[in-house]
């Protein structure tokens, strides 16, 4: 938990780093949709290969991506395992009341890879985009909602603060776990129930810490006259460049490729 890497910006000077944050967010969303709409191995492979190329170009060390995968590995395995039993077709194996079919196996493998691709895409975006850029991008993308009377600044600052404090919360969790470990808490116990109970004890101090932190940040911001209703200018104006245009073309090619492959009848 100390090595929590998911969501941590990795500063760099690669093409992916230089891309407009809005393009990165929109591309991520399109990739999410494509990943879940892909229904065969070729379309999924196209997505996997394209994001692998983006990851290489991003110049972020591979170990960082591996650490991101590690953090969601258990959830992915459990989700894929449960999915095994939810396809009623010709049974391959019967485990009492439960049965595993070929289509169940196929959809489990697909789901497992889909989840991995999702983490991969999110990691690329998070590693190559600073919190300030993400906040500014959301503010820009959501600006049409302002016409409906929705306060975009409020949403943007909420997103910024949430992202900024994820690593802080993990550090605090690590501290609390250690503090309880030295008093003999059962974190290393082989008994699952004892282990779950031990982890439940983390939540009380963690929630208190979060609320206290939130309150002190609010007070600190108010004491410096922060007013969410005021219109703000930004030091950095977001402008699309030729790089962004190339990335949009690249995205369109992948999009077309995946849609065509989805129409083909392959495993």
């Amino acid at each position: 938990m100390n090595n929590f890497e998911f969501c941590k910006y990795f500063s760099g000077n690669s093409i992916v780093h230089k891309l407009d944050a809005r393009i990165k967010i929109i591309s991520s969303l399109i990739f999410f949709i494509l990943t879940f709409s892909s229904n065969n191995i070729i379309s999924l492979s196209i997505i996997a290969i394209s994001i692998s190329i983006i990851a290489v170009v991003s110049e972020v060390p591979l170990i960082k991506y591996i650490k991101s995968f590690k953090s969601v590995l258990i959830i992915s395995v459990i989700t894929a395992f449960i999915n095994l039993f939810f396809e009623a077709e010709t049974n391959l194996v019967c485990l009492g009341e439960l049965s595993v079919s070929l289509s169940g196996l196929k959809s489990s493998i697909f789901l497992f890879f889909r989840l991995f691709i999702l983490v991969f895409i999110s990691s690329i975006t998070m590693f190559t985009t600073s919190v300030q850029e993400i906040s500014l991008a959301f503010e820009n993308l959501l600006s049409p909602l302002g016409y409906l009377g929705i306060n975009i600044q409020e949403i943007a600052i909420t997103i910024t603060l949430s992202l900024r404090f994820i690593p802080v919360l993990f550090e605090e969790t690590y501290k609390i776990i250690n503090a309880q470990k030295v008093r003999g808490a059962h974190f290393d116990s082989k008994n699952v129930i004892k282990k779950i109970r031990a982890f439940c004890n983390i939540f009380v101090p963690l929630f208190i810490f979060s609320f206290k932190r939130a309150e002190s940040i609010a007070i600190a911001m108010e004491s410096r006259c922060y007013d969410v209703s005021k219109k703000r200018t930004s030091l950095k104006n977001m402008e699309l460049s030729h790089r962004d245009a190339i990335s949009i073309i690249f995205l369109l090619i992948i999009f077309t490729g995946v849609i065509i492959c989805n129409k083909m009848k392959i495993f």
Partner: peptide, 22 residues
């Protein structure tokens, strides 16, 4: 045997231990 056994022999109170009460 494990961290638990060490901790029963060597115990530590971290900085601002009041933040860890539960």
């Amino acid at each position: 045997k494990n961290t638990k056994e060490i901790c029963f022999n060597v115990t530590m109170a971290f900085q601002y231990p009041e933040n860890q009460l539960f």
